[in-house]
């Protein structure tokens, strides 16, 4: 079982979360070429090692967040909420 530390809910069973795969910066759809867009849609680094990923706490707080996970060992690093810096996640729960 993979325990994913949701920034709001704390450690959650990965089965209670939705896994949304590798985190990529989305190119601007107004200016990018179709090839760039399709690369963004389909191509993946898929490393065996540390990877920044998108997760969605679907049965808990329903927040999207990013987290670094080691795809071989399953280790996880501190989660990051969108638009915030690492470490500044636990503050505004109120």
């Amino acid at each position: 079982m993979l325990l994913v530390p949701c920034p709001y809910c704390g450690p959650m069973n990965a089965a209670d979360l939705s896994y949304n795969g590798e985190s990529h910066r989305r190119p601007d759809p107004k200016t990018c070429t179709p090839e760039e867009w399709r690369s963004y849609l389909y191509l993946r680094e898929n490393p065996s090692g540390w990877l920044l990923e998108n997760w969605y706490c679907s049965s808990g707080c329903r927040r999207h967040f990013k987290i670094e996970r080691h795809t071989l060992t399953g280790e996880l690093r501190a989660p990051v909420l969108p638009g915030r810096k690492p470490g500044a996640t636990q503050g505004d729960m109120k």
Partner: peptide, 18 residues
């Protein structure tokens, strides 16, 4: 399983997740 890793060695990115 290692298709992405090996292809990355050649500089080819694949649309694969393992």
């Amino acid at each position: 399983g290692w298709a992405s890793q090996l292809s990355n060695m050649a500089g080819v990115t694949l649309p694969i997740t393992t």
